[in-house]
Design a protein around this nucleic acid. Structure first.
Lengths: 341, 341
DNA sequence: CTCCTTTTTGCAAACGTTCTCTTGACAGTG
DNA sequence: CACTGTCAAGAGAACGTTTGCAAAAAGGAG
């Protein structure tokens, strides 16, 4: 069966022949790891350039047993945070000579396993997991199989992980609201099965405690991370039927915050006049909403760099690296008109 | 140099040995293309399963000369439309047994070339370009090099392309506004160097023409596709200094629409009471804004399927496939209070 | 049971690299 | 000039599959 190559594919053999050296010499001359060497080698490189030689990555990987490729597993890329995270991972990987390959896994653990296998079948040198569940089996399986991997944006406490310090983030957000004079503060966190959700809530509680505010348990809502989850929670907190309602809300995610905004709008509550709002992740959108959203910025670039580092240089402590988030105050959290406790 | 394999890697040779057949028989028994065959083959498959054999994709690709991998080039994944597009491409590819690999190129043509090379170096069987510029050189280069490829969400009129019918989309949006009674309609399109931008504008013009409305040229603004571009355009159209202002705006993109919303908010103009607004792409966010945004939905799944088809089965006409968009009316385009004109 | 056709099998040669080992060249030293 | 050490280059064996070819086995018809 004839291969339909346009005859244009120039292989290392061609380069060697054209430069009058042996295959091995040509190979060595083009090896990027050792710096240029002697006269003849330079010649080979020139010829290769002229002929438009491109190394066949399969042959190379087959022989070398490494691919300089990392697999990234995310639930979905249409989630802006995941997309941003991947972009940073891609950048960090490429700056270290690696290529980042993504697969989306959805929310189903079964599909997640499948996606992981897909990536492993492509012989990735390591796997980066941006999937969120605390009770996920995958990290354990990967540890057992001795697959290099790192968790990103969350941790299970065992596998190498790079994430933002969610507890501090939660603290910063609520502390900001307290500093503005708020006492009636509600928190809408993510699902309880995510480490980010629980940690942000813990941080929020710490800030409340420090200020001597006893949190009302019915104002601490664990929701999903979607806009409608935020809307539902917002309705619960803000509907006219409530005897008293919070003057400030910390949403553990910008999506939730958007949902809360919609609910506030729906109930005729103005932001920031009647309600202060702080989100999380500092999505590009946040800054550009009609009422720009205060949000906790997570240093995704640092997290990405850490994750790559953990895989490329396994064994370098610490295995769990938290990067500090910062609060970006914007219009959505102004001084309240009707503050008080 | 010893390879650091955990000794766990089971190769085809092992499977063959364990099942007492030759290498070639084992290989054929595991070939997915021809359905199962005779007794012995079934046995091989069972052994392979037990041993946890996974075919080495490099060796396979090296020998076969194909990778069942498609490269997707997008400017950035943090653009929701691009992320959604990629997700659909991934799905469509996987349903045909292909794997979709993404690289982001940014806006710089230079980087785009580089990203394309990165993908080609990984021996993708074809390239899908979701980058937007009309004057892009890359499609021409790919044609010259006989690289299988398809454009997505735009066309240059020559290379195989799968996209939405932007002209019709523009028409639908403006026709909707006209049907609501609007006559003072402004259009904010994308950059003139994108086929989507110009086509949507053309469609809008057609709708205006049909209704006997002479478009005011200063109300047809070519902007970028970002939120702030929309904001700037919105300010221009809506600022209090304008003698008359439009009662309806068609934004060629949901981002632009969001910017216009912000500008309207800033100028104290209520949507939909004082201004009707229609966006484009029907981003998931659109439906969930405080004032849900009417938008033109583009069938990304069809487009993805077409693109994959064009690459996997090259030569099947037509080379340029347009899918029909539909209008999703929502709250942002209600009947105007002060219509007329 | 023979002859012919179809299917299955094994051998061995690829695919394009990399890398170990060996040989050759060259320069420096006494 | 002989000797040793350094460095570059070539030969050839991998890496794990797939596949053309020839031979063997199986199945069918008479």
């Amino acid at each position: 069966m004839e291969r339909a190559v346009p005859a244009g594919i120039v292989t290392l053999k061609d380069v060697a022949a054209a430069s009058g050296v042996s295959l091995s010499t040509a190979s060595r001359a083009l090896d990027e790891r050792m710096v240029s060497r002697s006269a003849a080698a330079a010649h080979v490189r020139k010829i290769a350039e002229e002929l438009g030689y491109r190394r066949n990555s399969f042959a190379s990987s087959l022989r070398r047993g490494e691919t300089r490729t990392l697999g990234v597993l995310v639930p979905r890329l249409s989630d802006t945070v995941m997309a941003l995270m991947f972009e940073e991972l891609e950048r960090a990987a490429s700056s270290r000579g690696y290529f980042a390959m993504v697969a989306t896994s959805g929310d189903d653990p079964e599909d997640e396993r499948g996606a992981a296998e897909t990536l492993l079948d492509r012989n990735v040198d390591g796997l980066i997991l941006a999937t969120a569940r605390l009770d996920d089996e995958l990290p354990r399986l990967l540890r057992e199989r001795r697959v290099a991997h790192a968790l990103v944006l969350r941790t299970d406490g065992i596998s190498p992980s790079a994430l933002g310090d969610d507890e501090v983030g939660g603290y910063l957000a609520v502390r900001h609201l307290i500093d503005l004079g708020h006492r009636n503060i509600a928190v809408v966190t993510g699902p309880t099965f995510t480490s980010s959700g629980t940690a942000r809530l813990a941080g929020a509680r710490r800030a409340l405690g420090e200020a001597g505010v006893a949190p009302r348990e019915e104002w601490l809502i664990a929701a999903g991370y979607g806009i409608e989850d935020g809307y539902t929670a917002g309705e619960t907190l803000l509907a006219g039927t409530q005897p008293t309602r919070p003057t400030a809300i910390f949403a553990a995610n910008d999506n939730i915050a958007m949902g809360v905004m919609a609910a506030a709008h729906h109930n005729g509550i103005a932001i920031p006049d009647d309600l202060a709002l702080v989100g999380y992740n500092d999505t590009p959108l946040s800054a550009r909403l009609p009422t720009p959203l205060s949000s906790v910025r997570v240093p995704l670039d640092q997290i990405a760099a850490n994750a790559i580092e953990l895989i490329v240089n396994p064994g370098t402590e610490p295995f769990i690296r938290r990067s500090l988030p910062t609060l970006i105050p914007r219009q959505s959290s102004g001084k309240p008109k009707h503050a008080g406790g």
